[in-house]
């Protein structure tokens, strides 16, 4: 009987935990902030493609459809609507401009439900069309857009809410919802998986064990945008930086969840990714990873900071004018 009781309790505890984890309505403030940050990054990423749109996406560009098809092993599931327009510069440009407008609309939270889905379609289409020129930025951009699409991202800090208010519609000050919670949870889990494999993969490499790996980044003239090779005189500092960043990556998936260690893990993400951004010239990637970490910031804190800034700037009339203490506690 003890064994049966154990499994019964285990079942109930698992199901309750699962439901609490995924299906508790949450304040969409954090998701709204991520929408603005990630949306801006995705918009910028696609804006930069404009400099050489034909060279990257044209039928006669660097990455021919034949080569791209071979990379995707001829699988249709690696879809991209750009194949329909890449033969014509006019059509390609029209599609690109429409894509930029949609991404901008999503960033400011206009018709967010629809533009969220369209932003996902745009992101996937672009990355699947140019497989040879991608890097970590594209992975994190697509990750964030995928989960922002699921709903709830427009329920805070969006033009949708501002317009609804102006039209006199009833708008909840804090529109807690399950969709927002699912989106945030998926971002959190995906970030953990990303760091876990990044850390575990490094354990196979000698330079992460002997503490010289970060030097490889600093000394690489094709990557770096800021010369810190003077650190060669301080090998122990290089060792420390290497091994702290490795320990942080491996520990992230476990230590970012407990209340006491979470602020430390998130705070460490900032210098680590800013270091990559500044020293290795990958500003976009570094910032995008920090935006992903915002998923672990509580909506209460986001409201405390963002609402304050909005009110100070007088940007939006009566924008989410705070919540009661009990509502904040529930959030």
């Amino acid at each position: 009987m003890i064994v049966v009781d154990y499994f019964k309790d285990l079942y109930h505890a698992t199901v309750d935990g699962w439901n609490r984890f995924w299906f508790t309505p949450t304040d969409p403030a954090t998701l709204g902030l991520i929408r603005i940050l990630a949306g801006t990054m995705v918009f910028y990423t696609h804006l930069v493609w404009s400099i050489d749109l034909q060279g990257f996406f044209g039928e006669q560009g660097r990455l021919s459809p034949t080569f791209v098809n071979l990379i995707h092993q001829g699988k249709d599931s690696a879809w991209s609507y750009l194949h329909l327009v890449d033969h014509s510069p006019g059509l390609l440009w029209a599609a690109h401009i429409i894509a930029l407008v949609i991404l901008l609309m999503f960033t400011v939270g206009l018709f967010t439900r629809t533009t969220g889905v369209l932003a996902f379609i745009i992101c996937i289409s672009y990355v699947n069309r140019v497989p040879g020129s991608l890097f970590g930025l594209d992975q994190i951009n697509t990750l964030l857009i995928t989960y922002l699409m699921l709903g709830g991202a427009g329920k805070a800090y969006s033009l949708d809410r501002w317009i609804a208010r102006r039209q006199g519609k009833k708008v909840l000050e804090i529109d807690k919802n399950i969709n927002a919670n699912i989106s945030i949870r998926l971002i959190q889990i995906h970030m953990c998986i990303m760091y876990l494999f990044a850390g575990l993969g490094k354990l196979q490499g000698d330079t992460w064990w002997d503490g010289t790996a970060t030097w490889m980044g600093f000394a690489n003239t094709e990557y770096r945008s800021f010369d810190v090779t003077w650190l060669a005189a301080y090998p122990l500092v290089i060792n420390l930086m290497t091994q702290v960043s490795l320990a942080w990556e491996i520990g992230y998936a476990a230590l970012v969840w407990p209340r006491w260690t979470r602020p430390i893990m998130i705070a460490m993400a900032v210098p680590l990714h800013l270091g990559i951004a500044v020293c290795m010239g990958m500003i976009t990637f570094g910032l995008a990873m920090i935006f992903g970490n915002v998923a672990f910031v509580s909506p209460g804190l986001v409201r405390g900071v963002v609402d304050g800034v909005i009110r100070k700037l007088g940007l939006i009339e009566g924008a989410n004018p705070g919540s009661t203490k009990t509502e904040q506690a529930a959030a």
Binding site: K75, S77, I124, T142, Y195, F197, G201, K202, A213, M216
Partner: peptide
């Protein structure tokens, strides 16, 4: 695989600068 490709999850591995940064 179709799901992984459709959602841009295929072949990433997230091995940033792993096992070693490039020499």
């Amino acid at each position: 695989e179709p799901y992984l490709r459709a959602t841009f999850l295929k072949d990433h591995g997230y091995r940033f600068f792993a096992p070693n940064p490039p020499m």
